[in-house]
Amino acid sequence: MNDLTQLISKAKKGDRDAFGQIYNLFYRRIYRYCKFNCAEEAQDICQETFLRAYKSLGKFSEKRGGSFQAYLFAIARNLIIDYRRKKKDVLLKEYQDIGEEDDLDERIDKKRENQKLKEAIAKLAETDRQIVVLRYFEEMTTYEVAKAVGMREGALRVRLHRTLKKLKEIIGA
């Protein structure tokens, strides 16, 4: 039994300290994911993700092939989708807290350099973008990404391949 499994097991029994450790392990990643997809409400969505994860912790089971990070990202993803549905005009905003340590000139250069790439990924469909983020940026396995976005692994692989092709076309255009 690894550490995370033990923590989950303790948290399931109502041990909030154990859940605190889980929170510490995943908060930054979930926050990043929320911020990337939904800059404005990232903090609230991130907190709500952990609250929901705690409430329905009883449903999560590693024995049934569950991956805890896929479980957390799936909750976050659903909350982001709900939020986007409510506010249809929300696009990928600039991340206001990126490189707060950098001076202004560096930040402007960095923004210019990455502007094209950001626009390219923003042009992808919501699910496609999340698949790319989870697979390549969060380095999750295809099995875990499939669990998080609610698809079959085979279908996910095909979609991922098409998305990368699309991304290449967008950037090349």
Partner: peptide
């Protein structure tokens, strides 16, 4: 770019 998103 993505990994540079870090909460305080």
């Amino acid at each position: 770019e993505y990994l540079s998103i870090v909460p305080a």
